[in-house]
């Protein structure tokens, strides 16, 4: 793998994470539990879509002058490089917010490192995104605490969400040859090196939320290298890509 190939993979990982999660969060628009949450979730989704345009825009430049839209709307599932965590369905509000929190925590730590990237373009995107993500984390963290330490029902639902999602956490810290090349070039950190900070942050919030982190460290994988996504991704893409696929070449 050349350095450019590795760089492209890295950019797709960043951009596909925000693309797919932004899509999932946008599914809440109009049907959230309360108006204020509806508006807040839309803000999160808007930030993530904006970040996608930046990551995939840069990826497209590396990938022979494609646009962010080309990459978002014209690749099939096996070419997506997002972690599995972000493609699992929303289910209830509890799982949506727990997924958001588990991702935001990783995202904020990752972006914090990328601000110091040797690649100026990466550093610039990270600088803009990290401000947005700091707020996402604050909000999702507070909501996880509020619901975990709320009523009996809300506590049970949040514990259930955590139990379901926890096996998807480990993939965010998997490291492979792409990561090795990014580390060597000073572009990005080893994901595995973020784990200690992540665990400390997540444990603190989940303890306050009176929730119990599952003991198993088992981790599903296959998203960030595209080897095996969940069945959910294909359904998401059939919706997201439908117009572009049905009317090739049309301008919207």
């Amino acid at each position: 793998m050349t350095r450019d190939e590795a760089f492209l993979q890295f950019l797709l990982r960043m951009g596909d994470n925000t693309l797919i999660l932004g899509h999932r969060v946008s599914e809440w628009c109009g049907v959230a539990p309360v108006l204020e949450e509806d508006i807040a979730l839309a803000n999160t989704a808007l930030d993530l879509i904006g970040q996608t345009q930046m990551w995939l825009g840069l990826a497209g430049e590396i990938d022979g002058g494609k646009s962010a839209d080309d990459l978002a709307f014209l690749r099939d599932a096996w070419d997506f490089r997002n972690v599995l965590l972000v493609e699992v369905p929303n289910a209830d509000f509890g799982r949506t917010l727990m997924r958001q929190f588990l991702f935001d925590a990783w995202h904020s730590i990752m972006l914090g490192r990328l601000i110091k990237s040797s690649d100026e373009r990466v550093a610039a995107i990270a600088a803009k995104a990290s401000k947005e993500v700091a707020y996402h984390l604050e909000r999702s963290g507070d909501t996880v605490v509020g619901l975990g330490d709320g009523t009996e029902e809300s506590h049970a639902r949040m514990q259930e969400a955590l139990d379901y999602l926890w096996p998807y956490v480990g993939e965010m810290f998997a490291s492979d040859d792409v990561d090795a090349q990014m580390v060597a070039a000073g572009i990005a950190p080893y994901p595995a090196d973020l784990r200690a900070e992540y665990d400390a942050l997540v444990e603190r919030v989940l303890n306050t939320a009176t929730l119990t982190i599952p003991e198993s460290r088992f981790a599903h994988k296959g998203g960030r290298d595209g080897r095996m996504h969940t069945e959910h991704l294909g359904h998401l893409l059939t919706q997201m890509q439908w117009l572009q696929r049905a009317y090739p070449g049309a301008k919207w």
């Binding site: 108006l35 204020e36 508006i39 807040a40 803000n43 604050e138 909000r139 507070d142 509020g146």
Partner: peptide
């Protein structure tokens, strides 16, 4: 105005609702 369970959430909601 807006609704929120407490002051902290009210500030966050205000950020999302009134500073878009």
């Amino acid at each position: 105005s807006l609704h929120a369970p407490d002051a902290e959430m009210a500030i966050k909601n205000a950020r999302d609702v009134y500073t878009r």
